[in-house]
């Protein structure tokens, strides 16, 4: 099964529950007294989505203003951004709009944006009306959910929706993962035979050109058809 690494970053005001959402998703636990994040923290979780494995590389950022300038490092190269606000605090929703603007201006062009209205278990003290937030999210084509990290509401759903919205790899040229894997194995054979190969760290596109030549070479000389086809199913042509 193909594995894809998806970088996801969490943005939003301090105290809205970004880390709690991550903890709920990754560890399925909740701690009411979680430490404030310094800079950013990093966690991963691999989930199956259709016939792919999605490994989420989750960068959970600090909400304090003084760390604001660091945010581009975390959303740079991100496949998705989850912007979190607290439904019981109106001003956190205003901050969210600023994040959306910033992502538009400086973020990756195809970034999937998800808006999470956290603490939906505190409906009694709600300040942000769900419909307002939903309308805003629709206007910017963002995913929208109200979540509760405390009561595990909509957390997994949020990430499933992100998996769904991220363009599938089929749109891209055939997965280079397998080719690279193959090239590594071939490199290994050459290495064992003291042949120095000059392509093992080249980018995938160039490697694919080389790989056919090397493959043909090896297939003719050393009959390694069984060897290279064991993993990826790339059969000799």
């Amino acid at each position: 099964m193909a594995l894809r690494e998806l970088k996801v970053c969490l943005l939003g005001d301090t105290g809205v529950g970004k880390s709690s959402i991550v903890w709920r998703f990754v560890e399925d636990s909740f701690d009411p007294n979680i430490n404030p994040t310094i800079g950013a923290s990093f966690m991963t979780k691999t989930v199956q989505y259709q016939n792919e494995l999605h490994k989420f590389l989750i960068w959970d950022t600090a909400g304090q203003e003084r760390f604001r300038a660091l945010a581009p490092m975390y959303y740079r190269g991100s496949a998705a951004a989850i912007i979190v606000y607290d439904i019981t605090k109106e001003e956190t929703f205003s901050t969210l709009k600023n994040w959306v603007k910033e992502l538009r201006q400086h973020g990756p062009p195809n970034i999937v944006v998800a808006i999470a209205g956290n603490k939906c278990d505190l409906n009694d003290v709600r300040e942000v009306i769900e419909k307002d937030a939903k309308d805003y999210a629709d206007s910017i084509h963002a995913i929208f959910v109200e979540t509760s990290a405390k009561n595990a509401i909509n957390i997994n759903e949020l990430f499933i929706e992100i998996s769904r919205r991220i363009p599938s790899t089929d749109a891209n040229p055939p997965s280079s993962g397998r080719s690279l894997n193959l090239i590594l194995r071939i490199f290994d054979i050459l290495h064992e035979n003291h042949i120095v190969l000059s392509v093992w760290r080249t980018e995938a596109t160039r490697a694919r050109g080389h790989i056919r030549k090397i493959y043909a070479f090896l297939y003719n000389r050393v009959r390694v058809g069984w060897y290279v086809s064991t993993k990826g199913g790339e059969s000799p042509k």
């Binding site: 594995l3 560890e27 966690m43 991963t44 979780k45 494995l53 894997n181 993993k231 990826g232």
Partner: peptide, 14 residues
């Protein structure tokens, strides 16, 4: 190989 390794690790520095 990356393919063989990734799925089981799931939790680097988690």
């Amino acid at each position: 190989s990356p393919e063989a390794e990734e799925p089981e690790d799931g939790s680097p520095g988690r």
